[in-house]
Design a protein around this nucleic acid. Structure first.
Lengths: 112, 112
DNA sequence: CCATTACTTGCATAATTGTGCAAATATGCT
DNA sequence: AGCATATTTGCACAATTATGCAAGTAATGG
């Protein structure tokens, strides 16, 4: 055996903390990726109806996908009269992905 | 309406291409994140049995999780006698995550 | 108020997923 | 060859997921 220590070291814990399966779960659906990509290309927020045009499913399904993305922190939303406006928290998402990449490399360097 | 163009622009397409739902799917399970974190902290490859010690499920389940991660390109494997050695493709994973972050920001800058 | 627009939610359903146990496969050792 | 070790695979099952349709809620405007 190469490693007799079966307890996770602090580097493992740090990485496990940085890698958020809930975020990955939110992003693991092609329709939701489509929504994220659509929102990323827009300067202004979009309504559920706007977004429904981009993916070939019923708008009720889009509404549900938006909720999932919002709960994962990928999107934000606000009501504006009858409409609900959604937008991408692009900075947050990009930063989170980079933090994960950093955590992986830090862990590798500590291991080596 | 703020955007009369319903066709996806090239920035949307580029982002949708960079964001890989199949990779997110591989990483959306807590046990698989645990496996990734465990492998990241090791200098040498680990066997299925080694990895089974770290997560509280049957080794047959671990074997399946390893297969999923391997097919997503997160891990590599080689047989060594009776054992099968798995290791994390850490550079690939870190790079892919950063590429996604870049794609998001490029898309945002082009939209603005 | 009532009709219209915009969105969310309940219900049903088909498909997928994670899991354990047992059997099968692969390899090494004597 | 026969047995032990290491991993994968088949099967069953419970839980979750994505989806459409229909009904419900929220807000606006006549």
């Amino acid at each position: 055996m190469t490693n007799t220590n079966t307890l996770p070291d602090c580097c493992t814990i740090a990485l496990e903390d940085a890698m958020r399966p809930d975020l990955f779960k939110a992003l693991c659906d092609p329709v939701r990726i489509s929504i994220v990509a659509t929102l990323a290309a827009r300067t202004d927020p979009a309504t559920v109806s706007d977004i429904s045009d981009c993916c070939g499913i019923d708008f009720s399904g889009v509404s549900r996908h938006l909720k999932i993305l919002k709960e994962a922190g990928v999107l934000s939303a606000t009501r504006d009269g009858r409409k609900v406006l959604y937008w991408l928290d692009a900075d947050m998402l990009a930063m989170t992905l980079r933090t994960m990449a950093d955590a992986i490399e830090i862990c590798r360097k500590q291991a080596a």
